[in-house]
Amino acid sequence: MHRRQILAACGAAALGWPALPALAQGYPERAIKLYQGFAPGGNADAIARAVGLEMGKALGQPVVVEAQSGAGGTIAATTVARAKPDGYTLLLATGGHAVAGALYNTLPYKSVADFEMVSTVTFFPFLVVVNASSKVQGLREVLASALAAPGTVAYGTAGVGSTHHLAGELLAKMARVSLMHVPYRGDAASLTALLGGEVPFIIAPPTAVMSNIQAGKLRAIATTGPQRWPGLPHVPTVAEQGVAGYDVRSWAGLLAPAGTPRLVVDRLNAEVLRALQAPAVRQRLEDMGGEARGSTPEEMKAMVSHEIDKWQQVVADAKIPKQ
């Protein structure tokens, strides 16, 4: 047994919990609760339900999704970090989990050390979007304007410290220009601002803007991932438009409390990977603009750690106040 599991087992015994190896035998014996930290009906909720439903079929126990919204997902993360490490309390974390780890001075948990990573579930890019009436045809024009008049070209996002915001700051840093960030209270508000002409462009996830793009009200001029997004294959990436190496994608994945037995983590990992092969699950994730992609626990841990390091540097460079 790993040293952490030995220590966790000793702690469990001291608290009157069954020893963790015993908990792993016959797992699961009851319903599993999967927390997600955003509003019911949103992206995180839909991802959790699609994957959880499929996992429950193979596990023989229901995976019950519970929304615990607030503070950018940190409330739900706190609940899971403090839960018994027995595999019955999980977290559907998103890219905001890494952003919070970079942006907040103090959190009730450590973003990596207080969790066992299970597997990634999906990755999706953001879109750089303009009003359909805009004369701007590509991102190069936006960056040229920003270079000519530093700090005058504005962009809207879902709020200060959102992944969208940090994606804009990273864009400005890598393109060596100055952009003016205009925060709104969520994607819907930034979308309304763009439609109303308050800002020349916004950065938003596909689900927030696709209906208006399809209706001819908005136009995407760039995608933020390393490859073109299949949902809009004609739209070039940021990297293709002069910002080499630019890559910003949000993600979702499953986490368990630190000390969860490796046997349990491995079982959950196997069922996540199995669920991601189900056509209905893959289609649901693709409909939300995502790419179904699982991982090993070690791969997910390395990815989250890298994301935190990247965003810490962006926060420092942009002088974004720590929360």
Results as ranks from 00 to 15, higher is better:
L15Y: 10
G16K: 07
W17P: 03
P18H: 08
A19M: 13
L20N: 05
A22Q: 15
L23D: 02
L23T: 15
Q25K: 15
Y27V: 08
E29Q: 15
A31H: 13
I32E: 02
Y35R: 10
Y35S: 03
Q36I: 09
Q36M: 12
F38R: 03
A39F: 15
A39M: 13
G41P: 06
A44L: 13
A46M: 13
R49C: 12
A50F: 06
A50Q: 07
E54P: 01
M55F: 06
M55I: 09
G56S: 13
G56R: 06
L59C: 06
Q61V: 14
Q61C: 13
V64D: 00
V64N: 00
V64Y: 00
V64G: 00
E66P: 00
E66K: 06
A71S: 15
A71E: 14
G72Y: 01
G72R: 03
T79D: 10
V80A: 00
V80R: 00
A81T: 11
R82K: 14
R82C: 09
K84A: 11
K84D: 06
D86G: 15
D86P: 09
D86N: 14
D86H: 11
D86V: 12
G87R: 03
G87V: 03
Y88A: 02
T89Y: 04
L90E: 02
L90G: 03
L91N: 03
L91H: 05
T94F: 07
G96W: 04
H97V: 08
H97M: 12
A98S: 14
A98L: 07
A98F: 05
A98P: 04
G101A: 08
G101K: 01
A102K: 00
A102V: 04
L103H: 04
Y104G: 04
N105W: 00
T106G: 00
L107T: 05
L107N: 07
V112I: 15
A113M: 10
D114I: 07
F115P: 00
F115W: 10
E116N: 10
E116Q: 14
E116W: 03
S119W: 01
S119T: 11
S119L: 10
V121I: 15
T122A: 10
F123L: 12
F124L: 11
F124Q: 01
F124E: 01
F124T: 06
P125E: 03
F126A: 04
V129W: 01
N131D: 15
A132N: 11
S133L: 08
